[in-house]
């Protein structure tokens, strides 16, 4: 693999989403494309790897910029819509 030869992280080379989960309280997602739907129970985020769905309670987009989106609330499930 090219990324292994160059020593560059895969998500940077392929622009794949990177998800960082802090307990069940917070999720930070880098390399996303856009927000598809935002609700209290679920949030759907478009990425290059597919539509990432977050399910939980009292979900809220705490901060969003071009590079990353931070979601707070009680997170129960994270999955790719197409892969389920």
């Amino acid at each position: 693999m090219m990324e292994h030869i160059l020593g560059v992280p895969t998500e940077q080379v392929l622009s794949l989403p990177s998800v960082r989960l802090v307990g069940d309280r917070k999720v930070e997602i880098c390399n996303y494309k856009g927000l598809l739907s935002v609700g209290e129970k679920s949030i759907c985020i478009a990425t290059r790897a597919g539509n990432l769905v977050l399910e939980g309670n009292r979900l809220e987009v705490a901060h969003v910029t071009k590079e990353y989106v931070t979601i707070c609330g009680t997170i129960r499930r994270i999955y790719y819509e197409d892969h389920l």
Binding site: G34, L35, V38, E40, H63, V64, K66
Partner: peptide, 17 residues
């Protein structure tokens, strides 16, 4: 509206339905 705002580099926070 939100996606366009993000693409234009606008910071958004406390986004709730």
């Amino acid at each position: 509206w939100i996606n366009i705002a993000i693409r234009r580099g606008i910071q958004l926070w406390d986004l709730t339905r």
